[in-house]
Nucleic acid binder design. Structure first.
Lengths: 149, 149
DNA sequence: ATTATATAGTACGATATGGAACTAGTAAAG
DNA sequence: CTTTACTAGTTCCATATCGTACTATATAAT
C-alpha cells in the first residue's frame, strides 16, 4: 500500500517536473514566435521542413500527437496565412497532401533565428550539458510511453 | 551560424522530447481520471492536499503555471463539483482562500489509487530507473527555466 | 458484385486556456 | 489625507483542443 503510494508519488513527481518544464519552455517559445503564431502551428511547419512535405494530415496528426480535428483546424490556420498548400491525394480519393509554400519556409527560418536568439539568453553551458546527458533516457522513455499507450 | 543552428536543433529536440512525454503522460492521466475531470483540475486538488489548503487563487495559479483567468475558471468547476470551498480572505479584502472539502479529499484519494493502478501496467523497472536517474537534472533544469523566465 | 468494415477528413459543440479591460481593495508617495 | 501605483479576482472574447457524429472513399468478406 504505502509502497504503491510512494511509487505513485515518485511517478507523479516525475511527470509533474516534465509538465512544468514543458509549460515554461512552450511559453518561452510562444513569446519569441512572431505575430501570434501558436507553437503547435510552428511545430507543424517544422515537421514538414525537417521530415519532408507532401504528407497526409492524418500522418502529421499522429506525429504531432493531436487528433485529426485539431489538425484540420491548424492546417486551416496555416493555409489562411499562406504557409502551406493542401492538395487532394492523387492516389487516395479520401486523402489530402500538405505542402510548404516558399512563404512558409521563409517564415520558419526567420522564426528559428528569432527563437535561437532568445534561447541564447536562457540556455547556458550547464543546461546544454543536462540536455546532452539525459537525452538518451528521455528518448527511451518517450518511446516506451508511445509504444504502450 | 551553423553552430547556432545545430545548437538550436539540439535544444529544439530536447524540448520536443519533453513535450511528447508530457503529452502522452497527460493523456494517460486523463484517461484514468474518473468522470471527465481534467488533469489540470486534479493537479489543483493534488497541490492543495500536498501543500496545504487555505491558499489564495493567485498563489495556486503561480504554482500551477497558469494565468489567474484560468484559475478563476478551474476553481469554479471544482466548486461546482463540491471538491473545494472558496472563502474571502479575512486579512485582505481583495483576496480569497481555497479550502478542500471532505468530498474533494476523498475524490483525490480515489483518483490516485485509480491512476496508480493504471500506471502499474505502463511504468516498469526500466522506467522507474530512468526517472530516478534523471530526476536531479530535470529538477535543476526546471529551476533554471523558472528563475529565468 | 454486394455488403460490411475501416479510414481520411469535416462539422459542430464543449471545455481549457490566455489576453485585455474592468472592479475593488491595498500600499506607497507627496 | 489624497493621490498614485499596484494587486486579486472577475468578465468578455478569441483560440487550441477534443469528442461525437457525419460524409466519402477504400478495403475485406462473402
Amino acid at each position: 500500500m504505502s509502497e504503491d503510494n510512494d511509487n505513485a508519488d515518485e511517478v507523479f513527481g516525475f511527470f509533474t517536473e516534465i509538465g512544468i518544464i514543458n509549460q515554461l519552455s512552450t511559453a518561452m517559445f510562444a513569446k519569441s514566435l512572431p505575430d501570434g503564431v501558436h507553437p503547435s502551428h510552428f511545430a507543424i511547419l517544422n515537421h514538414l521542413a525537417r521530415m519532408g512535405d507532401g504528407k497526409a494530415p492524418m500522418r502529421i496528426a499522429s506525429a504531432m500527437q493531436v487528433t485529426k480535428n485539431t489538425m484540420t483546424h491548424s492546417l486551416k490556420v496555416l493555409q489562411d496565412r499562406g504557409y502551406i498548400e493542401v492538395q487532394p491525394d492523387p492516389e487516395d480519393g479520401r486523402g489530402k497532401r500538405v505542402f510548404l509554400t516558399e512563404t512558409g519556409r521563409a517564415f520558419r527560418e526567420e522564426a528559428i533565428a528569432l527563437v535561437a536568439k532568445e534561447l541564447r539568453h536562457v540556455i547556458g553551458a550547464d543546461q546544454r550539458a543536462i540536455m546532452h546527458r539525459i537525452r538518451g533516457d528521455l528518448k527511451q522513455m518517450r518511446k516506451h510511453l508511445d509504444d504502450n499507450r
